[in-house]
Simulated scan of single mutants.
Amino acid sequence: MERVLITGALGQIGTELVMKMRGIYGADNVIATDIRKRDDAVVLGGTFEILDVTDKKAYFEVARKYRVDTIIHLAALLSATAETKPILAWDLNMGGLLNALEVAKELECKFFTPSSIGVFGPTTPKNNTPQDTIQRPTTMYGVNKVSGELLCDYYFHKYGLDTRGLRFPGLISSVALPGGGTTDYAVEIYYEAIENAKFSSYIAQGTYMDMMYMPDALDAIINLMEADATKLVHRNSFNVTAMSFEPNEIASEIRQHIPKFKMEYNVDPVKQAIAESWPDSIDATVAKEEWGFKIAYDLKEMTEDMLLKLGGKLKQVGS
């Protein structure tokens, strides 16, 4: 990768990925785009363009203008938001992806887009879910992601496009706020713990879901994109994960640092139904074998880092 175009650059993944990749490849070689603009480091710290990914002509012109060799397509509606706006989710998630693949094909770019554990459904094995298994999701987001995996595979086999992807679990970030995902409680809980020493979870106690700390997710994207293509048997997409926990377990870990922290439950039936349709834990063996996937953070280490970083950030905001 030498010149990279990132869509959805102001989202949860994009916000941190842009800055990390600029540090590696140079600020002028990572072009950030989003449908909106705001005054922060992503916009002010390097090249930024307004881009609606459903506009194929505009997408092509931006990619051609900067002579990019890699497209990282992140623009999408997340699971909970997609379920409340299913038609918009299809139009954005699938229409935008198709445009991205066409642009990558025309400009012969390497291509990445994330998938999700949302591709799995109630009939998928719940524990240690394998790389290759039943994918019958019951959400629009899941349908989008399964379709996206197949579409990326099609472009690889039909056109030889170098497509790659990861099935992300819930992602937890100390930088970007949640963006409408079912697993967002695992981000919100840290903010509430620091500010109010209590949290009301919309996910029921005992509901396990896979999670990953954002630094590990960013490394996974970069390492996959830099991996030797000849060693990749699977491409779209690799199971990756760092930990699996239920709400009370993350609350218990927080109490190691904030003893008075209290957990309550006010279950959201829509989000709970989505969570219950997903696996309790997934198997990332294939990613480890094909390109050396590894993590640096478990629940304990992530909690320590989240509380440290968020504590400093929230203190600055309140001062």
Rank of each mutant, 00 (worst) to 15 (best):
M1Q: 01
M1R: 00
R3Q: 06
L5Y: 01
I6S: 03
A9M: 05
A9V: 01
A9I: 02
G11K: 10
E16G: 15
E16H: 08
V18T: 13
M19L: 15
R22Q: 09
R22D: 10
V30C: 07
V30L: 10
D34F: 04
D34M: 05
R36K: 15
L44V: 06
L44W: 00
F48R: 06
E49V: 09
E49S: 07
I50S: 03
A58S: 15
A58F: 03
F60C: 00
R64Q: 12
R64K: 15
V68A: 00
I71W: 02
H73N: 11
L74R: 09
A76M: 09
L77C: 05
L77S: 04
A80L: 14
T81N: 12
A82F: 01
A82Y: 00
T84D: 09
L88I: 12
D91A: 10
N93I: 11
G95N: 07
L97C: 00
V103H: 00
A104Y: 06
E106H: 06
E106C: 02
E106G: 01
C109D: 08
S115Y: 05
I117W: 11
G118A: 15
G121Q: 04
T124D: 03
K126I: 03
K126R: 15
K126V: 08
P130R: 05
D132T: 10
R136I: 12
P137H: 08
T138Y: 00
G142F: 02
V143D: 00
S147D: 01
L151A: 14
Y154L: 14
F156L: 12
H157Q: 13
K158H: 12
Y159L: 01
G160F: 05
L166S: 08
F168Q: 04
S173C: 05
A176D: 04
P178E: 04
G179F: 04
G181T: 06
A186L: 13
E188I: 12
Y190T: 09
Y190E: 05
Y191H: 12
E192K: 14
I194M: 05
N196R: 15
N196V: 01
A197Q: 12
S200F: 08
Y202H: 11
G206M: 06
Y208G: 03
M212G: 07
M212S: 12
M212T: 11
Y213A: 10
D216L: 11
A217G: 11
I221G: 02
I221D: 03
N223P: 04
E226H: 01
A227T: 03
D228P: 08
D228T: 10
T230V: 06
K231I: 03
H234W: 02
H234Y: 09
N236E: 09
N236V: 05
M243E: 10
S244Q: 10
F245I: 13
F245G: 03
E246G: 02
E246C: 11
I250Q: 15
E253F: 02
E253C: 09
R255H: 02
R255G: 03
H257L: 10
K260M: 05
Y265E: 10
D268V: 08
P269C: 05
Q272D: 09
E276C: 07
P279V: 09
P279N: 05
D280G: 11
S281A: 12
I282Q: 12
I282T: 15
A284C: 14
T285R: 13
A287L: 00
E290Y: 01
G292D: 10
Y297F: 15
K300A: 13
E301Y: 09
L308Y: 14
K309C: 06
K309Q: 14
K315D: 11
Q316P: 03
V317F: 13
V317Y: 13
